[in-house]
């Protein structure tokens, strides 16, 4: 089951510079395990304490997974996953 995963610039050090990679899994959680097996180190940049990192956005077919079941979001062959770091900041220290 092939799912295309779009990798942001800042994480391409884990994918030999590739903008997108293929992975498989029936849930987002499985997909991330498969990504980690192929590109060690990537999981830690996406997950913290068993949940999605606060300032990383993951989308499945253009839906933010925070609204579709988080790491339990189901996946099917041909789905498109996009990883985008949040663009955030501010004067608050």
């Amino acid at each position: 089951m092939a799912i295309e995963v779009r990798i942001p610039t800042i994480l391409r050090t884990y994918t030999n510079g590739e903008k997108s990679v293929e992975a498989s899994g029936s849930t987002l959680s499985d997909l991330i395990e498969d990504l980690e097996a192929k590109h060690p180190g990537l999981k830690d940049r996406l997950i913290e304490n068993g949940d999605l990192r606060r300032f990383v956005n993951l989308y499945v077919n253009d839906e933010d997974v925070r609204f579709t079941g988080g790491l339990g979001t189901g996946l099917s062959d041909g789905d498109q996953v996009v990883v985008l770091p949040a663009v955030a900041g501010g004067s608050r220290d």
Partner: peptide, 12 residues
């Protein structure tokens, strides 16, 4: 006034 974050849908 002390924080910004792009809306996640707009970001995509």
């Amino acid at each position: 006034p002390t924080f910004y974050e792009f809306d996640s849908g707009e970001l995509l």
